[in-house]
Design a protein around this nucleic acid. Structure first.
Ligand SMILES: [Mn+2]
Ligand SMILES: [Mn+2]
Ligand SMILES: [Mn+2]
Ligand SMILES: [Mn+2]
Lengths: 218, 218
DNA sequence: TAGTTTTGTTAGACTACCCTAACTTTATAT
DNA sequence: ATATAAAGTTAGGGTAGTCTAACAAAACTA
């Protein structure tokens, strides 16, 4: 069985090399940054994960998950998202509170627990942030979606998910009047820095490029 | 914040020095045995816990929890029993399956989670094994109860809790036809080894002294 | 193409938790 | 009261995961 730490590294690799990130491999420094450790530390773990055949990696080369590594990573993501859904749906947590606790709960080992939890929640498809919950087989349908920053001025779209899961970002999203399924109209965008004016429920707001990069819409 | 390991040591100390155990202090070897580690390992931790003022301990002396240590231990017990109740009541776990998973869940840190979980469960008083769930203040009402081995021949009693929480014991209990609230009649007891004949729902069974020591009744 | 910057690796050290083997202290039993 | 047994401690060592500092390779840039 994998340690919590190993699971966290695999999950980080999954997020850094997924469709969402638009690339299929990453590097030591990026991985280290994602996990808030130093590159030397990440390097040690890369050797270990390679030894366990969970990643593809050669000294000074790029890093990617093997099929086995991806399978393990997806299991962690599945547990994370099911727990977030539980906290949100059953325990009245707000969507900016669920992530932190799910970071702990995702490491609980018990196949029966996850199976029963999923059943208890009614086999949910999405977590509170709009992300797809992988099924028990590790299958994960990818969503056709783009970021708010990719939407053209004048067009309208619907918020389907958020990229960043931090409480500070999510609270900001709420403050702007947004939530899952919000309808957003693009009023204007500055060429210079990508600052965008949007309209939500008749209310206009200015949001940064960075903000728009973290909002997924269809 | 305490590590999982420290929490496990405090919880073990709590169980070894509680009313149920009929003593208020314990020793290095007993503690080590309870945690499946060697005495040398337990000794290291005793020094550490003393340093943190969570236990009363002097070299070669007996060990007991300080008020602060007891408070922490009870919090772990509270979480353990609430999670067991959740698994049993909401996720269709059987009473012999809950303990193992609760051993992991009891270490999740989130005051809001426990508060909401308790509310979600309807502020339960007892866990699936009949043990009292401490309240949020760390208060824990002690139960007037004795073991089946203390009941006199000819008397009847009601099963209110089990001492051992292992799957093997609990499955055995079920096999004998027992569960929480079962009415038990004491038919006979051998002087020699304490083997006892009991009657449950008209069905007679022979149980060992050890078995009877692990059944709490009123 | 030759710096220079970025990225990645290695060596050595630290903490937490665990072990074995040897030792010391305390308790028990003649 | 002494010998033996039981309980407890210490010394030294291992692994996992982290760090800093020094170094090596690759990528970029002028
Ligand atoms: Mn999350
Ligand atoms: Mn999420
Ligand atoms: Mn239990
Ligand atoms: Mn219990």
């Amino acid at each position: 069985m994998l340690s919590q730490t190993e699971e966290n590294y695999l999950k980080a690799l999954f997020h850094l090399t997924s469709e969402t990130a638009n690339k299929s491999e990453t590097g030591t420094n990026e991985l280290a940054a994602a996990l808030n450790v130093k590159p030397a530390t990440a390097n040690d773990m890369l050797k270990k994960l390679k030894e366990k055949k969970l990643i593809n990696y050669e000294k000074y080369g790029k890093v990617s998950l093997t099929a086995a590594g991806r399978r393990q990573a997806i299991e962690v993501v599945r547990k994370h998202r099911l727990w977030e859904t539980f906290l949100y749906e059953k325990l009245q947590f707000s969507w900016d509170e669920v992530h932190e606790v799910a970071e702990q709960l995702e490491h609980i080992y018990s196949p029966k627990l996850i199976e029963q939890l999923e059943k208890f929640l009614g086999y949910p498809e999405f977590d509170p942030h709009g992300d797809v919950i992988p099924n028990a087989k590790g299958e994960l349908k990818l969503q056709a979606r783009k970021t708010l920053s990719q939407v053209m001025v004048g067009k309208s779209c619907k918020l389907v998910a958020v990229k960043d899961n931090s409480a500070s970002f999510l609270q900001y999203v709420v403050k702007v009047g947004l939530g899952l399924s919000s309808k957003i109209k693009l009023i204007s965008r500055q060429e210079f820095d990508g600052t965008t004016e949007i309209e939500v429920n008749g209310k206009k707001s200015m949001v940064s490029q960075k903000f728009a990069d973290n909002i997924f819409v269809v």
